[in-house]
Design a protein around this nucleic acid. Structure first.
Lengths: 111, 111
DNA sequence: TCCATGTATGCGGCTATCCGGACACATGGG
DNA sequence: CCCATGTGTCCGGATAGCCGCATACATGGA
């Protein structure tokens, strides 16, 4: 693979991570893992303006992480690939261990 | 868990993802998975100014994703937890499948 | 102490991202 | 056709991120 296309691939890779690098989008992804939802439902669930939710969904849609389907006047979104949840869970575990380690350091200091 | 601390946890979770949401940082993480390296080594490997690499490493260090160790005048960085690579690989697979799916759609259109 | 090597940071600029409110567009029923 | 419901987009502003250059700081040897 050429350097150029490798760089491009890494850019795409980073953009996938970028897609879940926002608190609201993480909540959206987990919420859609629970069950498919439309925009208004998510807006209520996240206590966030509809326009904001719509824009986040557009981001996730562009990355192919969610799928949309029209249902009457509403648009129902669902998670494309559950492995995204798997990756997020791994990151959460790494985070948890990191925080645990840091907490232990704090205890050492206070002794 | 209270709403406040849950929000805080989600913020931390998103910041972990943010840490690997940059092409150069992704390359750094994979490069450190290969072997531990100092800043100059990484700067040469990435063909990127030393100051830029140093700042990215600081980000990763703040998130606890890398560990630093002084070795003479140099500072050697290493990956804290290999599960980060696992999570990144999963994202890459999801990306690959997404691109494959999109490529198939393109073929359908050109028929 | 002075110097070479290696690393971190302040600075200025540019770009990207996130946001809510207002408004336009789409859909289906009356 | 008009309206209610639901969704997407434009706007303007505020914030955060990334960058290279120059420079200050740290370390160990001469």
């Amino acid at each position: 693979m050429s350097d150029l296309s490798r760089e491009e691939a890494e850019l795409l890779h980073s953009q996938c991570c970028q897609a879940v690098a926002d608190p609201k989008r993480i909540r959206i992804v987990y919420a859609l893992h629970d069950k498919e939802r439309n925009v208004t439902n998510l807006a209520g669930y996240l206590d966030t303006p509809q326009s904001t939710v719509s824009r986040h969904l557009k981001e996730l849609l562009n990355r192919g992480m969610v799928t949309s389907r029209r249902e009457g006047p509403a648009v129902v979104y669902s998670l494309t690939d559950d492995r995204i949840i798997h990756a997020l869970d791994i990151m959460r575990q790494v985070l948890a261990d990191t925080l645990r380690r840091q907490a232990q350091l704090v205890e050492l200091l206070s002794d």
